[in-house]
């Protein structure tokens, strides 16, 4: 069954029949929409130094006594609007998560395709490297790469390179899953007769890998990719929470939670709780959507 027919019929049908999938898709759409449109829909620009007003710091949410209508979810220690920082923060979280996944996916798929199709020593080497990496928790790998990169790069440009380094770190920590899946599917596909037919015609290996094998191994990869976006967002949040992620000048949801955490015990709960809820909603909806996608595609993809 080709992808188009699959999307046209079975996926759409399965989607309509799954309330969870619809809810998850709507929530994801809201999160992504909010993040993308942040500069237009956010009530304030939290990064405009001119608008910062320390007198407005620590304003509670609007519905609590002393709350101000202008700051629906309250303000932080700098007087920034929490709702606006969340919208801008989700933008960074999503951007880092998605880019890291794309990087991870390209790396893993390339490596897995090469290992599976060419086999031999290259395959053995790549898969042993994968085994070694799998014996470390991904967050540790990300921390390690992040740390090494920061030490190696000039100090004065830390803030500038923080985000690319973070994407690199999260990306490298996640390629193994893709590589293993793609390698497995490639081993199956390369023995199918349509690949042999292409070899008999005389197509070079690279063309066969890209034109024949790749389109047929991408199904499971897309599922893993979707679920991986949620994981990547959490990894980014964890690193930022630990203070090695994105700089506080351009805070992501993780950074916001860390900043708010300092005030949690002194009663200013809203500074950390609302970014926390935003993070949970984003991750949960992406996860649920990915789960549904996996279940919907699985019976078709053996």
């Amino acid at each position: 069954m080709n992808l188009r027919a699959l999307l046209g019929h079975d996926l759409a049908y399965s989607f309509r029949r799954s309330p969870v999938a619809i809810a998850a898709a709507v929530l994801t759409a809201i999160c992504i929409g909010g993040a993308l449109l942040a500069p237009w829909i956010a009530p304030h620009n939290p990064f405009d130094a001119a608008s910062l007003d320390l007198n407005k710091a620590f304003a509670p949410p609007a519905w609590v006594a002393q709350g101000a209508k202008a700051y629906p979810l309250g303000t932080d220690d700098q007087g920034r609007d929490i709702l606006s920082t969340i919208l801008y923060g989700a933008r960074i979280s999503l951007a880092v998560g998605v880019t890291a996944v794309l990087f991870s996916l390209s790396l893993g798929v390339t490596v897995g395709l090469l290992a599976g199709y060419l086999g031999g020593r290259l395959d053995a080497f790549i898969m042993r490297v994968a085994d070694v990496q799998l014996s470390f928790p991904p967050i540790l790998i990300a921390l390690l790469i992040n740390g090494v990169a920061r030490v190696a790069l000039p100090n004065d440009r830390q803030d500038e390179i923080a985000i690319p380094v973070l994407i690199l770190a999260i990306g490298i920590s996640g390629w193994v899953q893709y590589a293993r899946t793609v390698r497995g599917s490639t081993l199956v596909e390369k023995n199918k007769e349509y690949v042999q037919a292409a070899r008999v015609i005389g197509r070079p290996p690279l063309a066969i890998m890209l034109r024949h094998v790749l389109p047929n191994v991408m199904g499971p990869v897309l599922v893993i990719g979707t679920i991986h976006i949620a994981t990547a967002i959490i990894t980014e949040a964890t690193l930022s929470f630990l203070g090695v992620g994105v700089p506080p000048t351009r805070p992501s949801l993780g950074t916001l939670i860390r900043i708010g955490n300092e005030f949690l015990l002194s009663g200013e709960w809203w500074i950390t709780v609302f970014p926390g809820i935003a993070l949970v909603t984003l991750v949960l909806s992406v996860n649920l959507f990915g789960d549904w996608l996996r279940d919907a595609l699985n019976p078709k993809l053996r």
């Binding site: 992808l3 199918k192 007769e193 349509y194 042999q196 008999v200 024949h212």
Partner: peptide, 22 residues
């Protein structure tokens, strides 16, 4: 060798596996 090979082709057994489904 390549010149000779292009003068031959192969038909396979399984009509469901020998055509790229995509």
């Amino acid at each position: 060798t390549a010149g000779m090979r292009r003068r031959m082709q192969m038909i396979f057994q399984d009509p469901f596996a020998s055509l790229n489904p995509r």
